[in-house]
């Protein structure tokens, strides 16, 4: 089983748009970003299995089997 990590903006540099990772029970967003070399302060927005929230809280949420994360650096516009 694997999970899908969607990366955006400069997080794609050297990593690509989508990273597939093997799923291990209980793995969290923190485990994912550690393995990607991304730190929590670099993240402005995070979605785990379709749910968004404060970054620190979302990094502690266990990811579902076959789940996904979307990770964004600070971006804005309008």
């Amino acid at each position: 089983m694997s999970i899908k990590i969607k990366l955006f903006a400069n997080f794609r540099e050297g990593r690509g748009k989508i990273v597939e990772m093997d799923y291990t029970p209980g793995m969290t967003g923190q485990d994912v970003i550690d393995s990607l070399g991304i730190t929590a302060p670099e993240i402005a927005a995070l979605i785990v299995d379709g749910v968004d929230g404060k970054v620190d809280a979302m990094l502690a949420v266990p990811i579902k089997e076959d789940g996904y994360m979307a990770i964004f650096p600070p971006v804005a516009g309008g």
Partner: peptide, 24 residues
């Protein structure tokens, strides 16, 4: 600032397409 010194100069306002879409 990560937005005015990073995201906006590099990608323009178009950088919003994916993040707005991913939130549904």
């Amino acid at each position: 600032n990560g937005v005015t010194g990073g995201g906006l100069p590099t990608y323009g306002t178009a950088v919003l397409v994916n993040i707005i879409n991913e939130h549904g």
